[in-house]
């Protein structure tokens, strides 16, 4: 078995399993802590607030956007870009189709892929350089934040290195980093990719039942 076959095969399956089970365990763990039932008479629906909170926080508020434009542009660029790369990159669709899902869908054309990569990379770099150059973020950042940023960056970079599809070793490097990333994910702050639903929803619900239209 070649190195590529290992990182694409058993190791990938192991990493994906850790990712799925770990993330589930953590989400369920958070939910299972539970909270006291709020018995104050509600003004409006908490469930609707949960959903509204989730949607409302997708859109930044103008008055805060001005001061941290870099962060907002970088944040959106990176997250939307990464999402598009993962789910609409031709090689990724092939991989998901052949190994996991068994379904295929249209991919981005190559020029779009390159453009989106540029945006995603720019966004991630912006977010990280703000982390090292803003006194607030320097104070509050932890090792985990940096490891998460760098690991994601390396996964993306190795992916772009392997774009020519000419060398197995480059593809294997990418896949190895993907495996590491998948294993790291559920134990780290990368989990925000899932926990944001709970956090936005919980405060949305609290606000919602008070009848506050955020």
């Amino acid at each position: 078995m070649s190195f590529l076959q290992i990182v694409e095969g058993p190791l990938f399956i192991f990493a994906a399993a850790v990712f799925v089970l770990g993330a589930l365990w953590r989400l369920i763990g958070i939910i299972r802590i539970g909270r006291k039932k709020d018995i104050s008479p509600p003004k409006a629906s908490a469930a609707a607030g949960f959903i509204r909170g989730n949607l409302r926080h997708f859109i930044p508020r103008g008055i805060f956007a001005k001061r941290t434009m870099v962060h907002i542009v970088g944040g959106y660029g990176f997250h939307l870009g990464l999402f598009a790369l993962i789910f609409f990159g031709a090689y990724h669709i092939d991989f998901l189709n052949e190994r996991i899902l068994g379904v295929s869908w249209p991919a981005m054309p190559r020029w779009a892929f390159l453009m989106v990569s540029g945006v995603a990379f720019s966004g991630l770099i912006m977010l990280w350089v703000r982390r090292i150059s803003d006194p607030v973020m320097r104070l509050i950042s932890s090792k985990d934040d940096h490891i998460g940023s760098w690991l994601t960056f390396l996964v993306m970079l190795s992916g772009c290195f392997a774009l020519e599809q000419a060398h197995d070793s480059l593809r294997a490097t990418h896949m190895l980093l993907v495996d590491i990333w998948l294993v790291y994910f559920p134990f780290s702050r990368l989990m925000h990719g899932f926990t944001f639903v709970l956090s936005r929803g919980n405060s949305g619900a609290t606000y919602g039942r008070k009848g506050i239209d955020l």
């Binding site: 958070i30 802590i33 909270r35 941290t68 973020m137 934040d145 926990t195 956090s199 936005r200 919980n202």
Partner: peptide, 21 residues
Amino acid sequence: TDSEAASFFEACVNCGQCAEA
């Protein structure tokens, strides 16, 4: 730290946006 507070602690990415508010 109920499940609500826990979800807040878990979801924070130390982005520092709150400082601006």
